[in-house]
Amino acid sequence: MQLDWLLQPLLTQLNTGVLVLDAQYRVVFFNQFIARRADVDLAKVQGNLLEDVFADLPLAWLRRKLDSVLHLQVPAFSSWEQRQYIIKLAHLRPLSSDSQYMAQNCSMLPLTAPDGVSRYICLLIEDATDAYVYQQQLQQSVIQLEHANRTDGLTGVYNRRYWQQQLGYEIQRAGRYQHPLSLLLFDLDKFKDLNDQYGHQGGDFVLVELSRLIGSLLRDTDLFGRYGGEEFGIILPETGMTGALQVANRICDTVARHKMLYNQQTLKATISIGVACYFAQSVDELIQRADTALYCAKRQGRNRAVAYQPELEGYLKKVK
């Protein structure tokens, strides 16, 4: 059976771009797949140099690939993951893809004419836009998941698990490089009263509002997390006791002066802060010290910051 008639309709309807170049990289042939997507007419450009037919080609890169195909007579490949596209071609996913051009997998194959002498190169171009789009979506989802996995759902600060993990890393770093590190633990004063008076939604509103306010007072390198309920922690890298107390007092004052509007009512809240400095303790010990200082701040009348000192342990025992 004579099958030659098959070639033309197959090349025309093939869902793969076929582009043939001669040894001088002049365009010999391309199929309809390429003609329609690049909006070029083969009859008008046949015999022209590749770079004169298709704009903005990565020429140096492409020549190196084509040279190897021609001289070694072996195929070369290009993946969309490494080079998203070679020829600027339109694709059929203009809405779902953030790229204007078709992502392409390309095989470059050596061809020899029936005369046994003339060398050609065939470029097979496959549309990988779907794979590209899925990968973009996947990456986006991974970023969102990573964010959700370390964030407290209500306040948007770090959740306890992530925050405490970071405290571990910061302690290691401070220990290794002999850098200062401080920890603030704070608690909303009389939060139960707030909840009783304004309902839990009112209480939540205050937590969100104060988290935002306190977050705005911190440096980018400080790590702000929700420890639980109305208790929060702030890790201050590269900060000794003097600096940490300054930060703590500024936070205390700013919160006390801050007026919040909830259901046409003006709300005010205060916080108490315990401050502890890293001095070769474990994560748990450091948190314990900040907690002791926080307890003392409450005992001393709230709305204040107290620095941890070993004497506070005795004070703690007395009041217990």
């Binding site: 072996v74 070369a76 490949f77």
Partner: peptide, 9 residues
């Protein structure tokens, strides 16, 4: 890309 090119050549 360099690694895949070298290997395939």
């Amino acid at each position: 890309e360099m690694l895949t090119d070298i290997s395939s050549v």
